[in-house]
Simulated assay, not measured.
Amino acid sequence: MNAVATRMNASVRYEPLEDMAHTPVPFADLSIQWDQIRPAAMADLEKLFAESAFCQGPWATAFEAQIADYLGAKHAVAVNSGSSALHVATIAAGIGRGDKVLVPAHTFIGTIWGLIYEGAIPVFCDVDDATGTIDLADAERRMEPGVKAIIPVHLYGQPVDLPATLAFAERHGLTVIEDCAQAIGACHQGRSVGTFGAMGCFSFYPGKNLGGAGEGGLVVTDDGDKADLMRAVRNHGQGERYVHERVGYNYRMDGIQALVLSHKLRRLDGWTDQRRAVAARYAEALAGTPLRLPVTAHGDHVYHLYVVRTRQRDALKAFLDARGVQTGLHYPVPLYRQPCLSGIASSHATAPFPVTEDWAANGLSLPMFAGMTAEQQDQVIDAIHDFFKGSRS
């Protein structure tokens, strides 16, 4: 654990700031990670360019082996984005036109693009009030003929209730495709998310806990046949060169992304510890405010995002912005209200989603990143306390 994490673990109590200038606090600072891997990564980049290993190639193959070992999966299939990962997993699951799939209504739209591409129908479900993950009781109410799979999303770094989800899927004969885009490194009972269902899908978008120098994604599975199919699909449907056995896509991972991710993977656990230290400090310092704070309900939490809720969300966001604190909104428009999905969703799309609406209207993401200093976090905490003092006056 580095000096920042050690310092933050040693002192988690909030002390109000006095006479401190409002230095901007970024929502995330990715340069910290690059500074830590730069010397070794630059040396390897020289080798990659010398070998012209740009598309898939040996660096991606090596990364697949490394991350399969890290996650405890038999097979890892590297692709060019998290959305592509979910798409090839949809194909490998045999989900096609007219099939229905249970998905949480509160998630990024990338969760369902693969379904839409294959002509499948998302069946939106409300989410749990405490965690924002799929509400299985609501999913039970929305079951209908033709439902073939469920895509639980480990939202914001919080695993879903995996034992309950697997039991639900088994009872209804559903394939489970885990959306782990925000939760790499999270575990349940010592086992990595992504290894419980038939397939687990990850995103390496730069801002993720394990982020590339651009786009990237991955599917893990213990099913060799599914892995082979996904490898073909990502590479123009080729079983062998220039023999296109099925419709495929150009979803290959760039060698540069694989190289950067390999270097970052070695530091991921330490960076996760730093995120947890930031979250613990937020939790203690903000416990007396009107904010609804994140909870750890199932397994552990890797805090891709630290999302608080308040009915004063917009006013608080504006106040923090004025104090130089960047924040984010994840996700203010539920999927069932997205214009591009009009007429696509299942018959239950118009049913009420009260908890999803609450998360969409009231959720605010605070700055959260590995390497965040105590001083930066104090500035966020101090501004929040000042906001609520002012709102009471």
Rank of each mutant, 00 (worst) to 15 (best):
A3H: 05
D44K: 06
P122K: 04
P159D: 01
G82L: 06
V308P: 10
Y331N: 12
A164G: 11
V147K: 04
M368S: 06
P159V: 01
A78L: 13
R392L: 13
T107N: 05
F27D: 00
E64N: 12
T272Q: 12
I32Y: 03
I121K: 03
D254W: 12
S81C: 08
P26C: 00
N9F: 02
N209G: 07
W359S: 07
P334D: 02
I109A: 04
V4P: 00
P367D: 05
D222P: 09
G132E: 01
F108I: 07
S192C: 15
I37V: 10
G239D: 14
T23H: 01
A283N: 10
Q274G: 14
G371S: 10
W271E: 10
D314G: 11
C125G: 02
K47G: 01
L293A: 09
R97W: 07
G288D: 13
G299H: 11
F204Y: 12
K208Q: 13
H106S: 01
Y242H: 13
E284R: 15
M253D: 03
A315V: 14
V4W: 00
L335E: 03
R337D: 05
A130Q: 04
D69L: 13
V147R: 03
E215Y: 10
G207P: 05
G224S: 15
H348Q: 12
L30E: 01
F108E: 03
E215K: 08
Q158F: 03
T131A: 01
V308Y: 05
F124G: 02
D314F: 11
A297V: 12
D382H: 04
Q274N: 14
L305E: 11
R7V: 00
Y70P: 06
D254H: 12
L17T: 00
V12T: 07
W359L: 12
D225M: 14
L268Y: 12
L305S: 13
G288S: 13
A167Q: 15
R171T: 12
G299V: 10
W113S: 06
D225S: 15
P334Y: 03
H244E: 14
I256K: 13
H154L: 08
Q189W: 12
L17V: 00
E284Q: 14
A21H: 01
T131M: 02
M42K: 04
R309N: 07
D19M: 01
V308N: 06
V4F: 00
A120Q: 05
T373E: 05
Q379N: 10
P334W: 02
A383Y: 02
A120K: 09
L286D: 07
N2H: 02
K226I: 14
D382S: 03
A120P: 07
